[in-house]
C-alpha cells in the first residue's frame, strides 16, 4: 500500500510570506498535533491571533484561510499545507503598519474594551465585507455570532463594521 504519507515539510503562506516548515515535535517545527493557532503564535511568533477557549467556542482565534474565516484553534497546521493564511498582522497597507479601513473603523468607534476578542472579530468582519460589501446590520451580527466578547463591545462593533462597509462602498 502506498499512502500520501505526511510530508517532511509543509508550506504555509502567512500574510503573503511563504514559510517552509519541517514537520516534527521540535520548537521551530510543526507537529502533526499542532493547531494552526499554536503554529502561528509559537512557531511564527504571530501572537495577534488569540486563544480564548481553545475549543472553537469563542472566535478569538479566527484567521482567514484561503479567504475564509475559520477557527485556527481547531484546525491542524499540517492540514493547511499549501494554503494561504491571513492573520490580524496581515491587515493594512503595508500590512501591520497603516491600518486597514476596518481596523480604522474599530479605532474610530472604540469598538473594543479589553481588546482580546478584537483580532478575531476584525478577521471575521474582514471576511464578511469581502463577500458582502454592504451587509445589513443583521448580517453583521450573524457573521459575528460565534464571537464571544465579555466586555460587551457588540454595539460599538456593529457600528464600526457598518461604518467600514459604508466607507468601502
Amino acid at each position: 500500500m502506498s499512502y500520501v504519507k505526511e510530508k517532511a515539510t509543509i508550506t504555509l503562506t502567512v500574510n503573503g510570506e511563504t514559510h517552509e516548515l519541517e514537520v516534527g515535535p521540535g520548537p521551530s517545527q510543526v507537529a502533526p498535533w499542532h493547531t494552526l493557532a499554536q503554529t502561528l503564535r509559537e512557531t511564527l511568533g504571530l501572537t495577534g491571533t488569540k486563544i480564548g477557549c481553545d475549543h472553537g467556542g469563542c472566535g478569538s482565534c479566527t484567521v482567514l484561510v484561503d479567504g475564509k474565516a475559520i477557527l485556527s484553534c481547531i484546525t491542524l497546521s499540517v492540514e493547511c499545507d499549501g494554503k494561504s493564511v491571513t492573520t490580524i498582522e496581515g491587515l493594512g497597507s503595508p500590512p501591520g503598519r497603516a491600518p486597514d479601513p476596518i481596523q480604522q473603523a474599530f479605532i474610530d468607534h472604540t469598538a473594543f474594551q479589553c481588546g482580546f476578542c478584537t483580532p478575531g472579530i476584525i478577521m471575521a468582519s474582514k471576511a464578511l465585507l469581502e463577500k458582502t460589501p454592504s451587509p445589513h446590520e443583521s448580517e453583521v451580527k450573524d457573521a459575528l455570532s460565534g464571537h464571544f466578547c465579555r466586555c460587551i463591545s457588540h454595539y460599538h462593533v456593529v457600528r464600526a463594521v457598518m461604518a467600514a462597509a459604508k466607507k468601502g462602498s
Partner: peptide
C-alpha cells in the same frame, strides 16, 4: 481614540500568553 487603539486592532497589544 483610545491611546492603545492601534496596538489593539493590529494585534500588537501584549497579553499574558504573548
Amino acid at each position: 481614540p483610545r491611546k492603545d487603539a492601534l496596538e489593539i486592532v493590529q494585534g500588537k497589544a501584549q497579553f499574558i500568553d504573548d
